[in-house]
Simulated scan of single mutants.
Amino acid sequence: MGSDLRQRAERTGLAMMAAAGILVTVADTLGWLDKVAPGGVTKLTLLILSVVTGTVLLEIGRLGLLDNVHSQLSKLDMEAIAQRLKRDHYSGVVRVHDRFPEELFTRYVETAAREVVILQTWIPNLHEFKHALKKAIVDRQVQVRILLLLPSSQVAGFRDEALAAAEGRPPEADVNLDVQHCLAGLAALYGSVRPEHRARLQVKVYNSLPSIAVYKADEHYLVSSFLHGRLAIQCTQTEIDGDDTVMGSEVQEELNTLWRIGAAIDLGDWQGSLSTIVM
């Protein structure tokens, strides 16, 4: 509104100046100027002012567009544009971490509003965010889904062999026991919440070659590989934002596939539940 009034005032003032220049020129030609103001403003100066003012008047419409630059820029959602460029050029990848960032994932779990999903052989760092998972389940009604490798699977033996050279790994440790220890920890979490919250913690086991390890909180993914001699959390982690991005959708499809073929574990009696699974 203020910009429109200013433009009208500028146009009116410039038009009056231009008209005055033309009138003075005519008056000078007819000899009236010397009678009105002898020795006054020279003809040349008035002509220059008239021409300059007329030119500015013609350009004022386009110059007025500059008044809208700030308002137009303010309408742009720069963050949304940046996110779109990331999606288009990097397929959803926002950064790469040297190893699993426990603090970052814990923050993601603490702010999750819909779901947390973990795909692992077992979760060696469960203790790092176990409390955050409990608060998400109880305080914000977040759905938590866990996918672990079937302890008795042949794949567990293969993975154990691949981890044989892992730094600091006890010689007596094996994947079968690690998975069972993880299930015991999840069962403890299950038992620590009130019965009405327990349905939001679901665990399944799969009997398949693990493809990737995934830690997901809402639209945030941390994805790594199962390399020889190292735990997945010790490997490079690719952070992806958005399940509608190229990489995000691929990871989500893998999660959906394994969840579909997995067998549910009753955390109220996880050992008895495991004994009945045939895959």
Rank of each mutant, 00 (worst) to 15 (best):
I123V: 15
M1G: 15
L46D: 02
H89F: 15
I60H: 02
T236Q: 13
G92C: 03
T29V: 12
D269T: 10
A184F: 08
D266F: 02
I261Y: 06
D266Y: 02
R169Q: 05
N125Y: 09
L149M: 09
V155Y: 15
Y108C: 08
V117H: 04
E250N: 09
T55G: 07
T238V: 15
E161S: 11
E102W: 07
M279R: 11
L183G: 01
P101K: 06
S71L: 10
V144A: 05
G157K: 14
L30A: 14
R62C: 07
A113V: 13
A264R: 12
L209Q: 11
A184M: 11
V52M: 10
H197P: 01
D88E: 13
K75F: 04
G157Y: 07
N207Q: 09
Q202A: 14
L148M: 10
L258D: 07
V56E: 09
T25R: 06
I212L: 15
S273F: 00
E115H: 14
C235N: 14
A165L: 11
F100E: 01
Q271M: 10
A264Y: 05
Q141P: 00
T106N: 03
A165V: 08
A136W: 01
T53G: 12
G2C: 03
L46R: 04
T29L: 12
L57F: 08
F129Y: 15
T236C: 05
I277V: 13
K135P: 00
E103A: 15
R230Q: 11
D88N: 12
L73H: 04
L274N: 01
R8P: 00
I146C: 04
M1L: 10
E167K: 11
Q252G: 08
G40C: 05
L255V: 10
L255G: 00
V93A: 12
K43I: 10
A19E: 06
T45S: 13
V144F: 05
Q154T: 08
L209H: 11
R198C: 04
I233E: 08
V96T: 15
I233V: 15
M1Y: 10
G157D: 13
H228I: 09
R84H: 08
Q7D: 08
N176I: 04
